[in-house]
Design a protein around this nucleic acid. Sequence first.
DNA 1: ACCCTGGCTAGCACAGAACATACTCAGCTT
DNA 2: AAGCTGAGTATGTTCTGTGCTAGCCAGGGT
Lengths: 169, 169
Amino acid sequence: MPMEMQGPLFALDEWQPERCSLALALDVIGTRSAMLLLREAFYGTTRFDGFVRRVGITEAVAAKRLKELVASGVLERRPYQEPGTRTRYEYVLTEMGNELLPVIVALMQWGDAHLRDDGGPLRIVSTDTGKPVRVRVVKAGTDSLEPEDLAVRINKGRTPDRSSRGRQA
Amino acid sequence: MPMEMQGPLFALDEWQPERCSLALALDVIGTRSAMLLLREAFYGTTRFDGFVRRVGITEAVAAKRLKELVASGVLERRPYQEPGTRTRYEYVLTEMGNELLPVIVALMQWGDAHLRDDGGPLRIVSTDTGKPVRVRVVKAGTDSLEPEDLAVRINKGRTPDRSSRGRQA
DNA sequence: ACCCTGGCTAGCACAGAACATACTCAGCTT
DNA sequence: AAGCTGAGTATGTTCTGTGCTAGCCAGGGT
């Protein structure tokens, strides 16, 4: 199982842990709230109120985390105006943020597969084929799907055990 | 950028956040120490002492986290014996743990690409071609690489600045 | 018999993550 | 002019993750 290296664990001792990109990434999106906010951003939520309600966090946490995510370049805060209202701000994924899609989907996929007995409440499918997508480690150059190629479906009729629930929603 | 759904954000309000697989996954591997321990496990570290030294966490944290990861089925604790020593235990990834590879690599890849100017200290390559691998969202059925198909290389001579980036990647 | 080493456990301290409640503020609607 | 709404800020508290220091135990080497 361990990855092969030129001699197992060879000189890996030599690189400093502070230089680990995984650790840097966790500094930016390593909290539960950040991850869940990103999930929502991918689902299409853009407004403060939506994030608060749908993620189920408090306004204080949402405000702090959104601010951090904007500061680190994952989200962009930009003004919009609905007719008859004043200018407000919405939060949308930047290119950098978009590239977190594999992280989020990989975690969901793993949770679906190993942490529940039904297949999970949602399926992410290709709009093209309608079939579920996967996150995979592949050779550089393999075709990949981008957020705009994907759709989310509610997994109906698969609720845990014969109980109904979110009917045809 | 938002994923298309059948009508944006349609009835997504109706599913309960507790049922989100992402949240469940975060309950298991949502801490920094858990993620870094997993990184090490993929690199081939198996022993308590190795985890402590290489991740740079305290023994107390390592013990606690390893125990949790074993309890949740991501790692397996199993006895081994080096000649001339007593029986000890090593921690190895289970099948379930192995399937976290995309999560870890996706995070590293993102950190490499967006959080530093050199390409990152390490490259994960296919042992087959020697070329760097990527984590991608793909159609179900696409070939993927498993841990045993991968090797880690130190990215030498590529310390910060004026160095090119993603060479032939 | 002793110490050393790997592999832990225990206790204390701190920072930050998250919660709850309450308050602000701008501008539109009434 | 008063209220409503979206988007926050302010305050206080609890919980968890992590660090530091120290101690423990088992078995082999000496």
